[in-house]
C-alpha cells in the first residue's frame, strides 16, 4: 500500500524523498544496507530538516551512514572530527589575520595621511573576504546543500556542545563583528557519539535520536556479501556466525562491521573454503586488535572451531605457528 504523504515542508530542494522505502533503496544503491528504523529516521531527518544524533558501539556504521547519505543524495560531505580542546576557531570560522594585516598595511601605504583613514579600514577588514571558513561555517554557507557530519561529539566538552545549539536549531551562526549568517540551504546534519559521556539535554532535544547496534546475522551476511561479492554464501554465513560468537565475549574491542568485511576479503585472498582453526589463527589479527583479546579469543573460540571444522584438529595444529 502506497500512502499519500502530505507535503509538510516547502523547501528549495526539490529532491526530498517521498517514502522511507525510497530512502532505503537509494542508500542501498550507495552500498549501505539500512534497516527499517534507520531508513525511516534518515527520511524524517530530510523531511523535517532536523539533525540526527546517532549513538551506538564503535564500528556499527555510524560514520558510514553519513557517507552513504552524501553519496545517495549527491550532496557534498562536510566532516567535522571532534576532539578534546576543539574550539570555535577550528570548527566555525576564523579571521584571516595575515590578509587583514596586509590589507591594513596596503591601505596605510597608499594613503599616508594617517589615523582617520585606517579607522575606516577597521570596518572593512571584518567582512566575508577575510573570513576563513571552518567545517560548520562551510556547511551552512555552501550554495549547494550538503551533508554535515559532526563525528564523535562526545569527545568534545560541554561548552562546545552549547556552541552548536544555535547552528542545530536555526541553522545560523552569529559572528560578533559581522552579524548573523543564515544557512542558504538546509544541510542534513548527523552527529555521532560513542556514548562515552552523557550529552546535554539541550542538544538531545534538538535532534532526532537513532540508536545503531550490531546488525542481525542475516543483515550482516548481506552487508558482507555486498562489500565482498566474491565470497560464497556459506562462507559468509559461517564468518558472521564466528563474528557473533566473538562479540559475545567480553572484549576490549569487539570486531566492527568494517572488520568483518576486511576479514571476508582476506579469506577470499587466502582462498579459504571454510573457517577452521588453522585459517582462523592465521587471519585472527584482522578482527582482533588487542593482545589480551587475542588470548581470550584463542582460548574460547578456537576449540569450538576445531570441533566443527572440516579439517581434523591435529592437522590444523601442525599448520599453525
Amino acid at each position: 500500500m502506497k500512502a499519500v504523504y502530505s507535503l509538510a515542508m516547502s523547501s528549495k530542494v526539490s529532491s526530498l524523498p517521498e517514502t522511507p522505502e525510497q530512502v532505503a533503496s537509494t542508500l542501498r544503491d550507495a552500498q549501505y544496507l539500512a534497516d527499517d528504523s534507520t531508513a525511516l529516521i534518515a527520511f524524517l531527518a530530510q523531511r523535517l530538516g532536523k539533525p540526527v544524533l546517532v549513538e551506538g558501539p564503535a564500528g556499527v556504521g555510524k560514520t558510514e551512514l553519513a557517507k552513504a547519505l552524501s553519496r545517495s543524495t549527491g550532496r557534498e560531505l562536510v566532516r567535522l572530527q571532534c576532539y578534546e580542546g576543539l574550539d570555535e576557531a577550528k570548527a566555525l570560522y576564523e579571521w584571516n589575520y595575515r590578509k587583514q594585516l596586509l590589507q591594513i598595511q596596503a591601505s596605510a601605504s597608499t594613503s599616508p595621511e594617517g589615523d582617520s583613514d585606517s579607522q575606516v579600514d577597521m570596518g572593512e577588514i571584518f567582512t566575508e573576504d577575510f573570513l576563513l571558513e571552518r567545517p560548520l561555517m562551510r556547511a551552512i554557507a555552501n550554495p549547494e546543500p550538503v551533508v554535515l557530519l559532526i563525528d564523535e561529539i562526545d569527545k568534545t566538552d560541554q561548552e562546545f556542545e552549547a556552541m552548536l545549539l544555535e547552528l542545530l536549531s536555526d541553522f545560523q551562526i552569529t559572528i560578533p563583528e559581522m552579524g548573523r549568517i543564515e544557512a542558504r540551504t538546509h544541510p542534513i546534519v548527523l552527529l555521532t557519539s560513542n556514548n562515552s559521556r552523557e550529552l546535554t539535554e539541550a542538544l538531545k532535544r534538538r535532534c532526532l535520536y537513532l540508536w545503531l547496534d550490531y546488525p542481525s546475522s542475516e543483515r550482516e551476511i548481506e552487508i558482507v556479501r555486498l562489500h565482498a561479492p566474491e565470497i560464497d554464501e556459506a562462507l559468509a554465513a559461517r564468518l558472521v556466525e564466528v563474528i557473533d560468537m566473538i562479540r559475545e565475549l567480553d572484549l576490549k574491542k569487539a570486531p566492527s562491521i568494517a572488520e568483518s568485511i576486511d576479514w571476508a576479503r582476506t579469506l577470499i585472498l587466502m582462498g579459504a573454503k571454510d573457517i577452521d582453526s588453522k585459517v582462523f589463527r592465521e587471519s585472527l589479527s584482522i578482527i582482533i586488535k588487542h593482545r589480551t583479546d587475542l588470548e581470550l579469543v584463542a582460548e574460547r573460540i578456537v576449540p569450538r572451531l576445531g570441533r566443527s571444522g572440516e579439517t581434523p584438529p591435529e592437522n590444523s595444529k601442525n599448520g599453525s605457528t
Partner: peptide
Amino acid sequence: ATTVAKSP
C-alpha cells in the same frame, strides 16, 4: 521513538 526517546 526517535523524537521522544533520546537514550538507550
